[in-house]
């Protein structure tokens, strides 16, 4: 049995460090603390939609990478969330469970295993040369898919670390489905 990726690591403060805007637009990003910075907000909104809509990877594959990253970062909210378009695309909790464990779980389909390996490389050792991973990615993923994978990690890793840094994260949260904020 694998260990949870963030087991034994520090836990974030449950006290929010900033007051979110008093807006109630229904857009999760606008109504969060991210909405406080006027120069960056429109770019976060545009990038969020582009990550989900403008790349070749399926919503299910995007979600697996996002959740693997969330476990590395220890973002409780990010771990609890499931994007509804990924669920509609066939994401199962069995698959989520497999990518939430440390290491590579036996039985993971090859493409999903490579997504997990890429996320681990991005988070843990981006300066290391991994010729085998690159060869496997080239066999299984197109050029555009590999760029999509890297850019979605750039987005989700930064976003989840931002969420943790802002505080206010509960110790646990129930699973909840949300839509891509548009």
């Amino acid at each position: 049995m694998g260990l949870e990726l963030d087991e034994g690591r520090s836990t974030v403060t449950t006290k929010a460090r900033v007051n979110s805007p008093q807006s109630d637009t229904g857009n999760l990003i606008k109504d969060s603390a991210l909405g406080l910075v006027p120069e960056t907000l429109p770019h976060y909104l545009d990038l969020t939609v582009a990550i989900w809509d403008a790349g070749p990877l399926s919503p299910s594959d995007i979600e697996l990478a996002r959740l693997r990253n969330a476990n590395h970062v220890g973002c409780v909210m990010c771990q609890a969330v499931r994007y509804d378009i990924a669920v509609a695309d066939g994401l199962t909790e069995d698959l989520v469970d497999q990518v939430s464990k440390q290491g590579i779980q036996a039985g993971l389909p090859e493409r999903q295993e490579l997504i997990v390996r890429f996320v681990d490389w991005y988070v843990l050792s981006p300066s290391a040369h991994d010729a085998d991973l690159k060869r496997c990615l080239n066999e299984q993923f197109s050029e555009a898919e590999q760029v999509h994978l890297a850019l979605l990690m750039a987005y989700f890793n930064g976003f989840s670390r931002c969420a943790v840094s802002l505080g206010g994260m509960p110790d646990s949260m129930p699973r909840m489905e949300i839509s891509v904020p548009r």
Binding site: V18, T40, G158
Partner: peptide, 14 residues
């Protein structure tokens, strides 16, 4: 503070 933690995430990513 919010802008800084946003920036750190994006700079780290870049």
């Amino acid at each position: 503070f919010v802008a800084l933690v946003q920036a750190l995430g994006v700079f780290d990513a870049m």
